[in-house]
Write a protein that binds this DNA or RNA. Structure first.
Lengths: 225, 225
DNA sequence: CAAGCGAGACGAGACGGTTCGTTTCGTCTT
DNA sequence: AAGACGAAACGAACCGTCTCGTCTCGCTTG
């Protein structure tokens, strides 16, 4: 029914995000109301923070956004998709207006210091209440919806993962970690414990914890002397 | 309303599970129909495996179990609680009839071999379709419900965690890992990557992966020579 | 250039259907 | 006699679809 489906469930998704960021002047393109779009995403984030994910409702989002329900159903296939987009929009706005910029991580030349700072910052981000609720909700949705998981992996996780990997390559070149280090395994060992501790609330996310974690992971991939 | 609430939402929970395992002969106790209880837990597990968690319904559980809805609402506060109980009952039945037996892990004297075998077995368990759906669903629920998370941590995670810790203490005594090893950090680094890889479907759970993971974690806590 | 036209997104809300959690009833066990 | 049980009806909440009438565009036509 829709000339161009903005949020596709399949792997192939040609720049829905770009579509919303770049002005929409090409002829024949569906005229999407950007004010409504933002209002929906904002409302979704607010409501999930207030009421919790279980009580998040399309009708409530529409009501708070001052929007007809059909406007939501027209552009998103599921509640999870709205949520993913709202988190996506949040992180993109936080980083600037421009589209698709490659992410780069700080590189002072000292991996240990850089990683410790990065992990502390990540832990702090996890503790931010305005991030907490939406991301927690999004994770629930992702765990049970492979399609959504694929979009998330492609749009959110992949760029960040690549930035981390790039930082580790730099460290590997500098001889600070083993030359044959498996970067994916390294990153799994570094981030998963932090992530799981947060997701399952199995412990506090203190700087002490993240520092000790970084030290331990670095010990697992020592450079040859 | 209920003389004794079988599934409490607060931290304090005096042996609901024991209550269901040990025969219920004490006078003044509510007469709970054990046939119904089992039918409900079985139905919940079957349905979540068939239809997925999103389509799991109290009404459907009641219908399949041949039970009135009220019988479910009488004994469990939420859908998540039913699910937790059904997973709990499954793992307990699998291990034997007796109540509350301490779990022990294999100890051949070789930590690396034991951990590799354990991780392979864990990975295989994660891949079992009859485990997959309920546990995935349970995790979603736990991530958004701190009360349920507390019960889960106490009833399911804690005993297993302690068994793992005990196995590591043995290894520490044997001088196979560092004397000052932080066991909790060790276990986080060992299990979280596997767990997250499964939960987020970010990669295959191959024996190669778990083996390399075990090796890397052991490298992070080397014994003094 | 300006007036008119048609496509399509929009806000609003009615619709039937499903599930919720509660309540009532009669039965059966203890 | 008390209380848990199966069954089923109930109002409320949301679901996802649909139909309105309105509005904003881009294109055509005079």
């Amino acid at each position: 029914m829709h000339p161009r489906r903005p949020f596709v469930k399949t792997r192939r998704l040609d720049s829905f995000i770009l579509c919303s960021v770049t002005p929409n002047k090409t002829p024949g393109t569906p005229r999407r109301n950007d004010r409504s779009r933002r209002a929906i995403l904002d409302a979704a984030r607010e409501l999930v923070a207030e009421k919790g994910y279980a009580k998040l409702t399309i009708e409530a989002i529409a009501a708070r956004a001052g929007v007809g329900k059909q406007t939501i159903y027209r552009w998103w296939p599921s509640k999870g998709a709205v949520l993913l987009d709202s988190v996506l929009a949040l992180s993109q706005n936080g980083e600037g207006e421009g589209a698709e910029q490659a992410i780069t991580l700080p590189d002072t030349g000292d991996v240990e210091a850089d990683l410790k700072a990065l992990m502390r910052a990540t832990a702090a981000e996890f503790s931010d209440p305005s991030f907490e609720a939406p991301i927690r909700a999004l994770n629930s949705e992702i765990a049970n919806d492979p399609d959504l998981a694929a979009v998330y992996a492609e749009q959110v996780a992949a760029p960040v993962e690549e930035a981390k990997r790039e930082r580790l390559r730099s460290a590997r070149r500098a001889g600070q970690i083993a030359a044959d280090t498996d970067l994916d395994l390294f990153l799994d060992m570094l981030y998963s414990p932090l992530y799981q501790r947060w997701l399952l609330r199995s412990g506090e996310l203190t700087p002490q914890y993240t520092d000790r974690l970084v030290e331990a992971v670095l010990r697992a991939f020592p450079p040859a002397k």
